[in-house]
Design a protein around this nucleic acid. Sequence first.
DNA 1: CAGCTTACATACGCCCACGTATGGTACTGA
DNA 2: TCAGTACCATACGTGGGCGTATGTAAGCTG
Lengths: 185, 185
Amino acid sequence: MRSPEDWLKQALVILRREGVEGVRVERLARDLSISKGSFYWHFRDRSDLLGRMLDYWDSEMTGAIIEETERKGGTPVQRLWTIMTTVRRRHAADFDVAVRAWAAFDRTAAKVVKRVDARRLDFVRSRFRELGFRGRALDTRTRLFVHYVSTEPSILPRPPAAEGEKLARAALSLLTARPDDQGQG
Amino acid sequence: MRSPEDWLKQALVILRREGVEGVRVERLARDLSISKGSFYWHFRDRSDLLGRMLDYWDSEMTGAIIEETERKGGTPVQRLWTIMTTVRRRHAADFDVAVRAWAAFDRTAAKVVKRVDARRLDFVRSRFRELGFRGRALDTRTRLFVHYVSTEPSILPRPPAAEGEKLARAALSLLTARPDDQGQG
DNA sequence: CAGCTTACATACGCCCACGTATGGTACTGA
DNA sequence: TCAGTACCATACGTGGGCGTATGTAAGCTG
């Protein structure tokens, strides 16, 4: 007795580890020790599953993180820091890399990525605006931050966790420092 | 009469647009209007082609760019700028996204990525060191720069070319500014 | 011009994945 | 107890890709 969530979760495990191409119906069935019959009971077809995966990614790796950040509250810098730690805790960057590679050849995925990017950029831009940045300085910091947080943790060689956290803090300091501040990052 | 280079080039076109999974022997043959027989004359098998693609990526998207940068010369900041423009001109970031997604489930690709990352980080770190950065400030700037240049141009929504160049310049200013400098980025 | 090599074309067997059809079992309400 | 539904197993047809076996035409080479 498998729920659609069981299939979805396993699909996401594979997505993170191997990308979309690893997400195959019969393979998931083997992983879950069940037959394809179950899958086609819960899902219309493979593309139905893929669509739901994109929805999940959108809501869990963007919506939920923004909401958690707003719930926790704090100064703009503290909120940006909350984003960084939450993203790391959820291994969100692994999903990002997989989904973005997927979006390179899939219209549906590309649409979701576009929407997600806009939402992330908007949220982060608002924080930097609260910090007093305007114009190109605002755009640059926003893009650098969103890009860094979205994919860096899964791309460059990972330092040990403690060192990784210090590097993230330093990056945040660097991006949030006003040009006339002293001694940051 | 196709050369191995014809196959390799077409394979790279597909890699950039669709990722490794799009790189299929029979599909490339159709693209080139020739039969599989040719492919298996020039290549041992599919994985032979994939290996050569990784070699090409390594040498063209890292080695060649570093060499071009050193040939052009200039101040450390000018050299970093050369890297940024060269990467954009070659669409290197598109390849990066594809290869990194590939490396998530392929040991061979992962090894090449690791080597490439080390080389890029080393080169860029040397430039930031010449600019006077040390310790964590050095590491942070190095990682931010390499990560930004490697994948940003293919990930976040692309601004028009002119605006993209200004954003890149602003990012470079921000990353190369000393904490005691005024009015940058 | 016979014979060898280059550079393909064609055909085949294999495997794996998709989606469907069909059948089975366990529970559930009347 | 019996129909009905939820949930799954199994078997099948189809298609695409891989690699190999074999054929073949064109160009040297002596």
